[in-house]
């Protein structure tokens, strides 16, 4: 997979994400479980990275910390130069709202809201007024090619379409970072290809994307793949085109 990607030149640009020796430890019962064991990584604006690893490797924990859904036990996480590793819940919510877009394996669309009202949700929490919310939600749907499905409810859409609505919801706030957690896990191969093509397209337009998967062929869609095992990075490779 090639393309006119804005491949950053290391050192020439400030990293968007910088993790420094991040540990995450859960104490379930007597034995502490180290989900992350000293992860350090930098992600630059415009990168398209895939994270692969078997279940239990810590890649989900990594994504939660990256998405500010959780904070590290120790270590530092700089997002856009700001240390976000010890913020309180309200500040984390604000960062999730403004800087991060999530795409989940189960889509997580609200069934009683139609497509554009699902897409506008993050804007409600950003206190954008109703008229602007609608305009931006429709624009985001346009971007994922679903402008004509704006008034459809999730159960009236195919899996692939639902995931595209979810992508539109992730994009609507113009986030710095798009986090996709197994976005193709619930899709057939055609819809998967569809969604991956869309992510590639978003990458081409300059967005920073982190894709988490356990499937190697999905991971290959990204320009750089990081392998996780036992809470550590075990390899960092450029995808062979």
């Amino acid at each position: 997979m090639t393309g006119p990607a804005t491949r950053p030149v290391l050192g020439a640009q400030l990293p968007l994400v910088q993790l420094v020796d991040v540990w995450k430890t859960y104490t379930a019962g007597e034995v502490p479980v180290h989900a992350l064991r000293g992860v350090s990584v930098s992600i630059f604006p415009g990168e398209y990275i895939s994270i692969v690893g078997p279940s239990g490797s810590g890649k989900s924990t990594f994504m939660h910390i990256l998405g500010c859904l959780d904070v590290p036990t120790s270590g530092r996480y700089y997002l856009g130069g700001t240390d976000v590793s010890h913020l309180d819940e309200d500040r984390l919510a604000e960062i999730r709202n403004h800087r991060i877009g999530f795409v989940f394996q189960q889509f997580h669309l609200l069934p009683r809201l139609n497509a554009w009202r699902n897409v506008e949700l993050p804007l409600i929490y950003a206190a954008v007024d109703r008229r602007a919310r609608r305009a931006r939600a429709l624009a985001a749907l346009e971007e994922v090619g679903l402008a004509n499905r704006a008034n459809h409810f999730p159960n009236q859409l195919s899996g692939g379409q639902q995931q595209r609505v979810a992508v539109a919801r992730a994009l609507v706030t113009e986030p710095d970072l798009l986090l996709a957690d197994e976005p193709t896990g619930n899709l057939d191969s055609r819809s998967s290809a569809d969604v991956l093509a869309m992510l590639a397209e978003l990458h081409r337009s300059g967005r920073t994307i982190v894709l988490i998967t356990h499937e190697n062929d999905v991971a290959a869609a990204a320009e750089r793949t990081m392998r996780f095992r036992d809470g550590r990075f075990v390899g960092d490779q450029e995808s062979a085109a």
């Binding site: 919510a93 604000e94 999730r96 929490y125 706030t173």
Partner: peptide, 16 residues
């Protein structure tokens, strides 16, 4: 629970 989790992930604070 899932809806609440989603809303929080999208930026809803506990107060909201």
């Amino acid at each position: 629970v899932r809806e609440i989790g989603l809303r929080k992930a999208l930026g809803a604070t506990p107060r909201v």
